[in-house]
Amino acid sequence: MNANDRTPADLLRSALAADPGRPLVTFYDDATGERVELSVATFANWVAKTANLLQGDLGAEPGDRLALLLPAHWQSAVWLLACASVGVVAEVDGDPGGADLVVSGPDTLDRALACGGERVALALRPLGGRFPQPPAGFADYAVEVPGQGDRFAPFAPVDPEGPGLVVGGEELSYAALVARAREDAAKLGLGEGSRVLTRLGYDTWEGLSAGLFAALATGGSVVLCRNPEQLSADGLAQRTESERVTHTV
């Protein structure tokens, strides 16, 4: 990876330039049996479309606050990188009432209604499916994102020292986020080609780092497991072998 990368969007660009075809995020939902694998190129395409939606249709600007009410999921990872691409501050499990925008899963729609700005809902169905009935007061992400452009350019440069992420009550700049991700990767012994299986949620820095940022910072990939309590010890061992996991968190 490029040592000069200072934002998550920089890291993704470097990953795309290095090897667009390699896996980046492999997602399992052990309550439904869903498995989705996204290469660097496919993930970057989702990020570009989502960033275009965020900047264009939703009118988000650098410094705006987005309450991200989503579990550990591949689409959550996409939104985190889309926010970083635009310069929007992603507040993980943030207060919708104090946010400029909110992005919600199906289980937090009532809470998300407190946001007075733009509201986006994700059904979190297999293959990114839409809601059978669109929730009132929300744009359905699965309806809005497919028509967005496949390439993204921010209207204004993203400041690496500007606020980028709020998680667990702590605010990190983009540069601090990247630096901490690199530190975590070094502690875990991650390097190019490492494959991290994580059963942590996205509601803590540890979960976000293990489930996305540390691998992205070092040329690795993640196997992200939702509802891991549904997976037996034998099932975990089989997944570790079949996915060629090098590190488990």
Rank of each mutant, 00 (worst) to 15 (best):
A60D: 05
D19E: 10
A48S: 13
A82W: 02
T50S: 15
W46N: 11
L54K: 05
A51L: 07
G56D: 08
A67I: 04
A48L: 07
P62F: 00
G33S: 13
W74N: 10
D93W: 09
A67C: 05
K49D: 13
L70V: 08
K49L: 13
W46E: 15
V86D: 03
L54R: 09
V78T: 06
V92I: 14
A84R: 03
A84C: 07
E91M: 05
A31N: 15
L58P: 00
G98C: 10
E91P: 06
A31C: 13
L80V: 05
V92P: 08
R22Y: 05
L101Y: 05
Q55A: 11
G63F: 01
L38N: 11
V78M: 00
N45Q: 14
E34C: 14
D100I: 13
D93R: 12
P23F: 00
F27Y: 15
L69F: 03
L80D: 03
K49M: 11
P62Y: 01
R13C: 02
T32F: 11
A77H: 06
W46D: 11
Y28W: 14
A77Y: 00
A18G: 07
A18F: 00
P71G: 08
P23A: 01
V86S: 04
L53E: 01
L81E: 09
R65H: 06
G33V: 13
A99D: 12
E37H: 08
L69T: 09
A18N: 04
S39G: 13
L38Q: 12
G94A: 06
A44Y: 03
V40M: 04
A82K: 03
P71W: 06
A99P: 12
S76W: 05
S76Q: 13
V25N: 10
G87T: 02
D30R: 15
L66M: 14
V47P: 05
L80F: 05
E34A: 10
E61A: 09
N45E: 15
D95P: 04
S76M: 13
Q75S: 10
L101S: 09
L16N: 01
T32A: 15
C83T: 12
L58C: 00
S14D: 14
V88G: 07
V78A: 01
A84M: 07
L70I: 07
R35A: 09
T42E: 15
K49N: 08
Y28H: 15
W46C: 00
N52R: 15
A18H: 04
P71H: 09
N52I: 08
C83P: 07
L69Q: 08
V25I: 15
W46G: 07
V86H: 02
P23E: 04
V86Q: 04
G97E: 14
T26A: 11
S14R: 09
D64Y: 01
V92Y: 04
W79V: 11
L38S: 13
L81A: 03
L81D: 06
P23K: 05
D93Q: 15
A41D: 12
T26L: 12
D30N: 11
E37M: 12
R13K: 11
S85I: 09
G21A: 14
G63Y: 02
F27I: 13
V92A: 10
L53Y: 05
A82N: 03
H73I: 10
P96S: 11
V88W: 02
L58F: 07
A72P: 03
E34W: 12
R13A: 04
V88P: 06
L53M: 06
H73G: 12
G59P: 08
R13L: 03
G98I: 12
